[in-house]
């Protein structure tokens, strides 16, 4: 009797997400996905605080080492473009994963990871350039808050790259217990969030003059 019952529950879930066998939840939603969205909501407050700190301190710097003097907009635009495009490749990975096409999924995930690494590399290059121009972490309020904000974002991208590569590895070795598409989707949500944070940073920090 118990058996039948569980199958009923599973059957109910099926129309919702075809890889959710036997997993009953009150809302029919995945625990992991709820947790991820909640985590992203929480991250809004984290980046909000860092962006606010930067907004408050953007104008407080020594004479010629302010934002308007050090930015290299064409370069940053290029790296922003790279990150934006990585969101596309991430989406393509997710749709491939939903089709259970492991190979294509892995290809797109790898490309996303490469684009992300490229962005991080660009940021490292940018930081070193600024540093050579004399803008150290402790130089001014502007520099402290700038490096902290973009540094936090950079760390998030780096963690994302590690996640992507881990998922690729786990898919190849078939070590993902349960629903692969959901894992890819979760990493995707995280990745897109990192992207939208950069959309804000790019406009608020780089494009609007201090």
């Amino acid at each position: 009797m118990a058996d039948t019952a569980v199958h009923t529950a599973a059957g109910h879930d099926d129309h919702h997400d075809d890889h959710h066998g036997g997993h009953y939840t009150s809302t029919g939603l995945s625990n992991n996905k709820l947790a991820m969205w909640l985590f992203l909501g929480s991250e809004c407050l984290l980046f909000g605080g860092l962006i606010s700190t930067y907004m408050l301190y953007r104008g407080r710097h020594t004479s010629n080492l302010g934002p308007d003097q050090v930015w290299d907009i064409p370069f940053t635009s290029a790296s922003s473009f790279v990150l934006l495009m990585s969101s596309l490749t991430m989406v393509l990975a997710v749709t491939a994963a939903k089709r259970h096409d492991d190979r294509t999924t892995n290809v797109w995930l790898s490309i996303t990871a490469i684009l992300g690494s490229l962005f991080v590399a660009g940021q490292v290059y940018e930081f070193t350039t600024f540093y050579r121009e004399g803008l150290g972490f402790t130089t001014s309020l502007f520099s402290s808050s700038f490096y902290t904000l973009t540094g936090f974002h950079g760390v998030h991208v780096t963690v994302g790259v590690i996640l992507l590569l881990s998922v690729v590895g786990m898919i190849i070795r078939n070590r993902i217990p349960g629903d692969k598409a959901e894992v890819v989707e979760l990493v995707g949500l995280y990745w897109h969030f990192v992207d939208i944070v950069w959309i804000l940073i790019f406009t608020l920090v780089y494009l609007i003059p201090a």
């Binding site: 066998g21 997993h23 947790a35 996640l163 993902i176 349960g178 959901e182 979760l186 995280y190």
Partner: peptide, 13 residues
Amino acid sequence: PEDGGTDLELATN
């Protein structure tokens, strides 16, 4: 195969 063990994202973040 069962569903579960996908705590990777939360754990790492």
